[in-house]
């Protein structure tokens, strides 16, 4: 029994020393080249994910809303201005028609007839 115990203890101690004299494992060559390719890929991905990020989406929505509001505001102002212009021209036209009639009135015709 003692012999077996001694044998096992020896085995255990030998196994515990299995890493003695171990050499450092070497990585595959051209790590830096592979690393560079991966860094470039990550940079592109981060730009893409940046475009899809919630912050960017919020910013895009705000920008679109601002453009729409600005367009509505500009269009409204344009229509108000054009309608004001139209009313001015109508009043002017009335004024012209009243004081400078282009078509002869009955009074004009009778005047023309009495004084040939």
């Amino acid at each position: 029994m003692k012999k077996i115990d001694k044998y096992i203890t020896e085995k255990v101690e030998n196994t515990l020393q299995a890493f003695d004299g171990i050499e450092r494992a070497k990585i595959k060559p051209f790590l830096y080249t592979r690393l560079q390719a991966r860094l470039e890929k990550k940079a592109i991905q981060s730009i893409e994910t940046g475009m899809l990020s919630p912050a960017f989406q919020r910013f895009a929505v705000i920008m679109i809303m601002t453009v729409i509001v600005f367009n509505i505001y500009t269009a409204t102002r344009f229509f108000i201005n054009s309608s004001t212009d139209a009313s001015l021209s109508t009043s002017e036209q009335l004024f012209i028609e009243e004081y400078y009639p282009s078509t002869p009135t009955l009074y004009n015709i009778s005047q023309t007839l009495s004084n040939p």
Partner: peptide, 19 residues
Amino acid sequence: NHPGVLAEKREQAKILIMA
């Protein structure tokens, strides 16, 4: 099996790694 382990210790290293 770790590539740096000495050839004569490969089997023991495997057992140690498992432990």
